[in-house]
Design a protein around this nucleic acid. Sequence first.
DNA 1: CGTTAGGTTGACTTGATTCAACAACAGTGG
DNA 2: CCACTGTTGTTGAATCAAGTCAACCTAACG
Lengths: 259, 259
Amino acid sequence: MSHESVARILDRTYRKFETRASLDEDDRRAFYSLPFEVRYVDPNRYIAREGDRAPRATLIVDGLAFRHKVTVEGARQILSVHIPGDFVDLEGSLLTVADHNVQALTRCETAIVARDEIIRLVETRPRLGRAMWIDTLIDGSIYREWIVNVGRRDSKSGMCHLLCEFARRLEAAGLADAAGYELPMTQEQLADALGITPVHVNRILRELDRQGLIVRDKRFVRVPNWEALRRVGGFSELYLHLNQVMPAVQREGAAPGRA
Amino acid sequence: MSHESVARILDRTYRKFETRASLDEDDRRAFYSLPFEVRYVDPNRYIAREGDRAPRATLIVDGLAFRHKVTVEGARQILSVHIPGDFVDLEGSLLTVADHNVQALTRCETAIVARDEIIRLVETRPRLGRAMWIDTLIDGSIYREWIVNVGRRDSKSGMCHLLCEFARRLEAAGLADAAGYELPMTQEQLADALGITPVHVNRILRELDRQGLIVRDKRFVRVPNWEALRRVGGFSELYLHLNQVMPAVQREGAAPGRA
DNA sequence: CGTTAGGTTGACTTGATTCAACAACAGTGG
DNA sequence: CCACTGTTGTTGAATCAAGTCAACCTAACG
């Protein structure tokens, strides 16, 4: 594996960690010397399954993935969506057993790191350990907001909130701009994320479109008025904790998180 | 602060950590030498508030507390309930700002530890750091299940699941037995935990009572048939990750988690 | 005792589901 | 190049789980 490609694989994650704790040159070297194996996962294929006991951690290098659980009645609930730079199965490696499924949303390039390497890394570089711990705390914060979204927002607000969250996270990772973004989720997947039915998702999306809150073109979503969408969704980006160490990126115009 | 009382304050948390990573005598000494300040919080008083930037971590020594958020429309969503031994505002100390509220459910005895002490502890004792990280991961796992509960279970299942979760967690902490337990939540609080209305909680509880799934006496809940409650709630304790290092306690009869 | 918080119940309404049909589209193979 | 097939999206009508509103009850407490 050449130096260039190692950089490409780990860069996004390292840059995220830099925004979560102050790291030095030794941390950097230690992180970039992590051994990993690259693996490609087709859409809808599983990255991890409930019950897995795989001693590894998987990193999304490119593509999107989502977590979900299925109830005994067979209803699926999507728990989160992950973007490049995210670790998606620390649970499966640091806990003894995975309690949920992780599935590729689009074709994913992933990097697999052995559990022992992760443990050695965080024990030798405590700052990196703290960055990863903080990352886990932020994941928890996003889960909490998701609970509010399915528990206490009606489906229209919930949908707007979801769209705002994706926009803001993608933007913070440099993967979207204020014009809009590609949201490669089917209406059925959106339904499972919001805890409603696909039929209802359809009606909500059409209503948002009719009201001019979003403009849809296939699965590309353009948002003419972020402030309006933000208001309907009751979105405030505090819970994303984007500015742990470095100040949030300032952009022109009405970016989604300007609250 | 005498040796005895330090032990009493920190014991429950340390014993929990022991079930999450293997710790040695040095870890133990380091943990028990954490400086803390004891504070008592009356029911419904806040332990932390959204927006707080307090550089500290709070530990529940005795009593119950809960996390919640309030939407812009004023609806409250309860996110989790915490029992003695739990850290409840790491978010407020390791992240720069708290994104939700933590409130006492019953009168709480808490121990406050300065942020810097926590950081020094985890940097000098990496194993303890890992135990705390794992604890955060498990909190995340519980949030995920909570998302499923409000998103994809109907109110009856959701209520049963909630009762099972409390039972199992209290039992694992040695605070309840198979006979039943005191659940000091008002129906309004249960409603905010399940994302439904208090009126509906009332009807569900009466229905469960009528069907013999629970026997209520004030707020003490007795469960004549754990297996039945577990089935209606679709409860499986995997997500609680109770047996990270040590095997789960084996008890006589029909314990809630025997799935 | 009056006040208040919490619990209970009935009548009515509503947001979302269900069911069912059909349209749009992409991919596949003849 | 077109027919076939499966997936995703769209729409209407009927139904239902949960919400709303409003009244009243009960126990705790100063």
